[in-house]
Design a protein around this nucleic acid. Structure first.
Lengths: 369, 369
DNA sequence: ACGAAAAAATAGGACTGTCAGATTTCCGGG
DNA sequence: CCCGGAAATCTGACAGTCCTATTTTTTCGT
């Protein structure tokens, strides 16, 4: 006897194929009693749905007609005040989200949760009544808890490193790899005493990824003089200057562009005697070399993930959350000497990558930082 | 305007959809003149046939709706000999790939590229004639170059950290975060002198992620005594014993289970005086605590990514490659004392996590390692 | 030159599972 | 008894293929 199909099964049961399909997918549109009956019959008949056909049919049915496919929610969780930087970061993310969502046929609506916006259970209601199923959660300070939402109705991505309530897929910049690539590039330009300053709160938030990569590569790059990291709760001229004067790094890496002034005040000339790289482009005003975290790309990829799951009807919390990362890019600026230029001081040799295993890495990842 | 389909095109041309389909497939059943006319119209209308739908329909028609499945290729690139460990790793990946592929309606075929298998351009031909479009590339040693394949025909994922020829999406274990979580867990169990040994080649391959996380957390965990990492081209008893005797770590972390013997030979008792964690479960024989890299999950996620792109007809090299990671898990074993147990030596205090920011991390990521 | 048979070209039907929208069934209140 | 609304169920349309049916064209013997 031939393998049973949806239609065969439906005829046997005296139901329509749709009802059978819905019943087997656990749709709420079917009466529980009927669904049970269908499942029993399917099991008895040895029916197995063809998942590939199902996927093809699904996208077929959806793509029919006009372009508009639905609405995504961009959810911002604001506990207290929102720093201007966080706001700029979220705006950059959103530009990527909107662009890709538009390409994929979705509209995006922004919601703010917290004291200044709606409460969580109110959001749940709004999303439900509006029929919104796809959520993009913008980075929140601390450890946001969204477990109160009815997750069986939504599919979501958190645009930051980690969320545990509930454990969702995350999308974030690849800080670790970016630091590795940055140091390799600086090394190739002849810098031999890279120094890193870092506020402890920032470092903790990223699980020390900037610093971990920095510490590891200090050990592995050839001819490096290890400059200890300046680690502090509060980085300002008073904490920076003694560290800079004592260890005299030939290139300084850190989050605050103010460091350029501090370096100058200590007698450094940029870029002739010393270099500087800011770790976040959004903090700069375009007057120094910096790392572009590719924020818009992150937003775009987040959107792709959510839409992909939406189109396959994958709602709820994922069984195994994953983290998707995108490498950052080095933006050139007047605070770094280019490749091949002569170092400004005697203790470093002209920038040429040494042969060996590391140089192969350097070649393969040279374009990005 | 909606995307043109076979039927729209046929109506425009005043032909039946069958004729159009045959014409586009270059069937001899259609008059050459008609075929040319159809191809011109298809190009003008921007018609693109959905190959996956085509495959589904074809098999559906032939096999009377039996269980049709698409096909994915799992490609193994073997330069010379394949170490037993690499083989076991790939097999574990494959089990995850096969399982998820089955759920999604795909069969998987394994191909071996290299001296022992087919050449790259031969693979290209095979995949083309078989109509295979989805590729899962298993980890290869070194820096594999697959740019010779006709990438406009395929969508692929590399199941390792990085590939640049061509730059594809990658899926890999999150070694960095796993080390962070592992150290937090060891700290919570009262260990205060963690020591890491690492072969340089291994470390380089992973871009020092194990070590980077280790170095960073040594700085940030409270009450830690920093034990320098044992770093060597070749780790054996002769290199291990002096390091172990000199620094006396209270828990040793590394890839080789042999270290347990070396520790015993130096007078250590596991787990009463010292602990040990192997960094790769596949290297152990189940007699020690170890880190499970979640290999099957990685295979599953890789498959999801490839299938997702296939269903959306997204072929070719991605515009922006991304890296997807999954955290590893700590597997308990007789070489670690449990949480709350008393340390075996006087220099460490009972295992209680200190209050503060780090403890929140520890709580939120405690389950995984 | 004509008609029948052969050949070539094109058209039709059936097949899968899904989803939006239509239709039917059910139930309580007026 | 009927109306309104909700719940449950059904209908139709959709993709590309391939086998078969139908139409059109060509061939060829008389």
């Amino acid at each position: 006897m031939a393998a049973p199909t949806l239609r065969t099964l439906a005829r046997e049961l005296g139901l329509s194929r749709t009802t059978v399909s819905d019943a087997l997918c656990g749709s709420h549109r079917v009466k529980a009693e009927t669904a049970a009956r269908v499942r029993a019959a399917a099991k008895a008949a040895g029916y197995e749905r063809n998942p590939l056909t199902g996927a093809v049919m699904s996208q077929l049915r959806r793509s029919r007609g006009q372009q508009f496919r639905g609405v995504l929610a961009a959810v911002e969780i604001v506990e207290a005040v929102h720093s201007p930087l966080a706001q700029r970061y979220n705006d950059a993310l959103m530009s990527g989200v909107m662009a890709r969502a538009g390409e994929l046929g979705f509209n995006v609506e922004r919601f703010v949760v917290g004291p200044q916006g709606v409460r969580l259970n109110r959001l749940d209601t709004i999303l439900h009544t509006r029929g919104i199923q796809g959520l993009i959660l913008l980075p929140a300070s601390g450890f946001p808890d969204l477990s109160a939402l009815s997750w069986h109705r939504y599919t979501a991505v958190y645009a930051d490193y980690f969320i545990d309530h509930p454990p969702l897929h995350c999308v974030c910049s690849d800080h670790y790899r970016s630091m590795i690539a940055l140091l390799r590039e600086l090394h190739a330009r002849g810098y031999r005493r890279p120094g890193l300053f870092m506020e402890i709160s920032l470092s903790e938030r990223l699980q020390f990824r900037w610093e971990g990569a920095f510490l590891a590569l200090q050990k592995y790059l050839p001819e490096i003089t290890e400059v200890p990291t300046l680690r502090s709760r509060n980085i300002n001229f008073e904490t920076f200057a003694p560290w800079f004067r004592k260890h005299d790094p030939d290139v300084v890496i850190g989050h605050f562009p103010d460091a350029m002034d501090w370096m100058s005040a200590c007698g450094a000339k940029l870029p002739s005697t010393h270099g500087f790289v800011c770790l976040n482009r959004l903090r700069t005003s375009g007057n120094c070399a910096c790392v572009d975290l590719q924020t818009a790309q992150l937003g775009a990829r987040s959107t792709e993930l959510v839409v992909g799951q939406l189109l396959h009807n994958e709602l709820g919390v994922p069984t195994q959350p994953s983290l998707t990362t995108i490498p950052a890019r080095l933006i050139e600026g007047p605070t770094l000497r280019p490749r091949g230029a002569k170092p400004g001081r005697g203790d470093a040799k002209p920038g040429k990558v040494r042969a060996g295993a590391t140089s192969r890495h350097s070649t393969s990842e040279g374009g990005e930082v």
